[in-house]
């Protein structure tokens, strides 16, 4: 079963690589991944859909939380959350089918974002299964190209991330000396 992982991360170089590294190091293939800035431009929100062995799920989350750049990581697979995906579809629409395509698009709540003599570009959002159906239906009208955004999800339980406070520089020096009894210098 696919797992949906939601992460709040520092918007820093390498953060994405570290997070995906936890998955790729185990040979997992990522089904979808979305990442964008949050309201705070220093942070990003990430949603990853991946097929993780159920026995390793909590370990994967813990190993992500361990990363310096990760402020929060949670498994939304079985918790209260909403998830949506967007698809852009370009469909060939000869004159005799244009009305039918538009009617069908309306059923799925899709919007026309471009129209030309060749056809339409349509935009639809929904849960991934609904988008699968939408794409299938549109394919029945003719040649089609589709790009999906990947899933974005948000938890319905407002959990605040636990953040660490600043520490003075060089604080490790005293701590370590205290531990070993080896004087510095």
């Amino acid at each position: 079963m696919l797992q949906v992982i939601s992460l709040l991360v520092e918007n820093k170089p390498g953060a994405l690589m570290r997070i995906t590294g936890v998955l790729t190091a185990r040979g997992y293939n990522i089904e979808s991944l979305t990442v964008a800035r949050t309201l705070d431009p220093a942070l990003s929100h990430m949603t990853i859909v991946v097929d993780v062995d159920p026995s390793l799920r909590s370990l994967v989350i813990k190993q992500m939380i361990k990363l310096i750049n990760v402020l929060q990581a949670s498994d939304l697979t079985e918790s209260r959350a909403v998830a949506r995906e967007m698809v852009l579809v370009r469909v060939k629409a000869p004159v005799d089918r244009r009305t039918a395509i538009l009617k069908e698009a309306e059923i799925f709540g899709a919007r026309v974002i471009d129209s030309s003599v060749e056809g339409f570009a349509l935009e639809a959002t929904g849960d991934p299964e609904k988008l699968d159906e939408f794409i299938d239906v549109m394919r029945s009208y003719g040649e089609l190209d589709a790009t999906r955004s990947g899933l974005v999800a948000i938890s319905l339980e407002g959990k605040k991330p636990r953040l660490s406070p600043p520490v003075p520089t060089g604080s490790g020096v005293e701590k370590l000396e205290q531990k070993t009894g080896v004087p510095n210098g």
Binding site: V9, E10, I65, L67, I68, N69, V70, L71, P161, R162, L163, S164, P165, P166, V167, P168, T169
Partner: peptide, 13 residues
Amino acid sequence: APVSAIHLPGYKV
């Protein structure tokens, strides 16, 4: 300018 503090909000010790 010597740095007096570091802030790693996601690094929990």
